[in-house]
Amino acid sequence: MASEKFDAGSAPKPVGLYPHARRAGNLLFLSGIGPRDPKTDGVPGLERSTSGNYTRFDFEAQCHSVFQNVRRVLEDSGAKWEDLVDVTVFLTDMKRDFHTYNRVYAEYFKDHQPCRTTVGIDSLPTPIAIELKCIAVVDG
């Protein structure tokens, strides 16, 4: 089965050699998508001092940003939000952030409810606290 890769120009650039998404048949697989701002490459809600310590941390801002980035990748790949069938979320601090994530998630998936798995992990490759891995079903 042939597959087609998509690099979403409106989303943050991947941090490695991989596409934003790859379509195989009617399935669209999104690579891990984080909350980085596609224009500045900064992390919404995160400010650091010159020594690298956090001076501001707003996890809710990262949640909203990651959902916006997923939407960007979907749309640039010819899909839409309602095409999502599976969402895996990786959180770097499950105890601190799960309840906020769950609340924000409910805002975005109130009417459309894909399957979901939430995984607590030690870290991500950039200074972000959340990353999503998604699968969508697309027509045509």
Rank of each mutant, 00 (worst) to 15 (best):
Q68N: 09
R96K: 15
F109N: 01
T50A: 11
A106V: 00
Q62D: 07
T126G: 05
P44E: 11
L30Q: 02
I121T: 13
L28W: 01
L17T: 13
F59K: 03
I128L: 10
S49H: 10
G45I: 02
F29T: 03
N69P: 09
S77W: 06
H112K: 13
N102H: 11
L74K: 00
V70M: 05
S3C: 11
A8W: 02
G45F: 01
K80G: 10
E4Q: 14
F109C: 06
S10Q: 13
R48H: 08
H112R: 09
A136E: 02
D93N: 15
A8E: 02
N53H: 15
S3M: 10
V89R: 04
I130P: 10
S123P: 11
A61I: 13
D122T: 15
G42L: 10
N69G: 05
L28V: 01
I130W: 03
L28A: 05
V15F: 04
P35S: 07
G25W: 05
P12S: 14
D139Y: 10
F59C: 09
I135Y: 02
G34P: 12
R36K: 11
D41W: 02
A8M: 03
R96S: 11
Q68R: 13
D58T: 12
K95I: 07
A129Q: 09
D139T: 15
V85N: 06
I130Y: 07
P44Q: 07
T50H: 13
K13Q: 09
I128T: 15
V119N: 04
I33Q: 01
D122V: 14
Y105G: 06
Q62A: 08
A11S: 05
G42Y: 08
S51R: 14
Y108R: 05
A129W: 02
K110A: 13
Y101A: 06
L27R: 14
D93I: 04
Q113T: 11
A24W: 06
P127R: 00
L124D: 04
R48V: 15
V73Q: 00
Q68C: 05
D111T: 09
V104F: 15
A24M: 10
L84D: 00
G25Q: 06
R48C: 14
G42I: 09
G78W: 06
D97K: 08
P44N: 08
M1W: 03
V119L: 07
G120F: 08
F57Q: 09
